[in-house]
């Protein structure tokens, strides 16, 4: 179980780095999909199979498809990739890389020294998730659904075809 976790975590870190460094937008998105799948595997090894499945369905399977869809419509070509290349200078990435390195060091230290024990990996089934969502977290669920409804209505309003008397 632990080996699976480590492997998936390494894949997630490498693919996320690739997302930042790719110049062709679709390639970057594909690495992001791999990264999300790796994170789903991490969830699964920690016992949260339900969260892992939702991660794949919603993030990798729906949201990223829409990203790919938009990038396809923009019809980027070689010039865009070259321009992207000129943007990624050490001046841009040095600062964030340094800060992330500090965090990565902390994480490694915590892992090796055994501080901050990892959450006890126990299986959380769909039933427990449902009970938690509609029990203690009911208010949050309702607020989230209101937010989504507002988003839906605004999107409908913006996309309305006013030319046909709508």
């Amino acid at each position: 179980m632990n080996a699976l976790f480590t492997l998936a975590a390494i894949v997630a870190v490498i693919s996320t780095t690739m997302v930042v460094t790719r110049t062709v937008a679709v390639h970057a998105l594909l690495y992001l999909v791999v990264s999300l799948l790796a994170v789903a595997t991490v969830f699964f090894t920690l016992g949260a199979a339900f969260a892992a499945a939702l991660e794949v369905i919603i993030y990798a399977g729906a949201i990223m498809i829409l990203f790919v869809f938009v990038v396809m419509m923009l019809n980027l070509d070689r010039d865009d990739a070259d321009r992207e290349n000129t943007w990624l200078t050490p001046r841009v990435w040095a600062g964030p890389a340094l800060l992330s390195a500090v965090l990565a060091g902390e994480l490694l230290y915590a892992g090796i020294a055994g501080h901050g024990t990892i959450v006890a990996a126990r299986e959380v089934g769909p039933v427990q998730v449902g009970l938690a969502l509609f029990g203690p977290y009911l208010l949050a669920v309702e607020l989230a659904s209101l937010l989504l409804l507002a988003g839906l209505i605004s999107a409908y309003h913006l996309g309305r075809d006013s030319g046909r008397g709508g």
């Binding site: 339900f50 499945a53 939702l54 794949v56 369905i57 399977g61 729906a62 498809i65 769909p126």
Partner: peptide
């Protein structure tokens, strides 16, 4: 959910 994930 696994099936739905694979189809998506």
């Amino acid at each position: 959910l696994f099936f739905l994930a694979m189809t998506s």
